[in-house]
């Protein structure tokens, strides 16, 4: 019985944590997607001196653990005058992490567009900008959908890492409750179930969307 009263006491904190997790996830996904698109377009259409540094930054982010990146940003930031509260640091870190991966996914999508589709646009008389906007971006979106859904799921799971810099998100709240009540494994089990439910929902939505867009597939 005492377990339940403790749980009831901790419940507001856990619910707040869940909301914060969802908010961080969606905000970081959106920011990451926008920044990733900008990087992909800059690397695809920009000059070499833009492409090279972006290639390096993306490589570093993709080649190091998110845990290490978030440590560097939060604890190392102050050494270069970047003092951030846990939540903004976590959001910024997660968005950058997502942007690096999204940029590669989207760049791959741009490269997978059949060159003939672009040539057809040129022959019709579309401008470069029109070709990007009317042909390349829509076709890219279709091509990258499965990989993007996968990336959204990854970002959701990586929000748990933010507990390490004391962002009061779901993992932080639930493990806090677990250690206060000596219920570590129960807490971990609850976390697993919540994250898994959310990722399954995301995957299901993605599959639904893919089916809806099936008629647009390359013939």
């Amino acid at each position: 019985m005492s377990d339940f009263s403790a749980l009831r006491e901790a419940m507001p904190e856990i619910v707040d944590g869940l909301w914060l997790t969802l908010a961080m996830w969606l905000a970081a996904s959106a920011l990451g997607l926008v920044l990733g698109l900008a990087i992909a377009l800059a690397r695809r259409f920009g000059p070499v001196w833009v492409d090279r540094p972006l290639w390096a930054v993306v490589g570093v982010i993709r080649g190091t653990p998110f845990l290490v990146q978030i440590f560097l940003l939060y604890y190392g930031g102050p050494f270069i005058g970047l003092e951030l509260d846990p939540t903004p640091a976590g959001l910024g870190g997660l968005a950058l992490y997502g942007a690096a991966y999204f940029s590669e996914i989207l760049r791959g999508g741009l490269l997978a567009i059949p060159p003939g589709h672009v040539e057809a646009g040129m022959c019709i008389g579309l401008s470069r900008l029109q070709i990007v906007r009317r042909i390349m971006l829509p076709e890219m979106t279709l091509l990258v959908l499965p990989a993007s859904v996968n990336m959204f799921v990854v970002l959701l799971k990586e929000t748990a890492v933010l507990s390490i810099i004391t962002v009061p998100e779901l993992t932080m709240a639930v493990t806090g409750f677990g250690s206060a009540n000596f219920a570590f494994s129960q807490a971990a089990l609850v976390l697993a179930i919540v994250y898994w439910t959310l990722t399954e929902l995301t995957g299901g939505l993605g599959r639904l969307l893919e089916r809806r867009l099936d008629r647009f597939k390359l013939a």
Binding site: P114, G116, H117, G121, C123, G125, S127, E139, K217
Partner: peptide, 20 residues
């Protein structure tokens, strides 16, 4: 180039219709 190309229509082996 675009202006001169406007005289020309092109039909490709692979059709190259825009799928969306």
């Amino acid at each position: 180039i675009a202006r001169v190309r406007r005289n020309i229509g092109m039909v490709f082996q692979q059709f190259n219709l825009w799928p969306h």
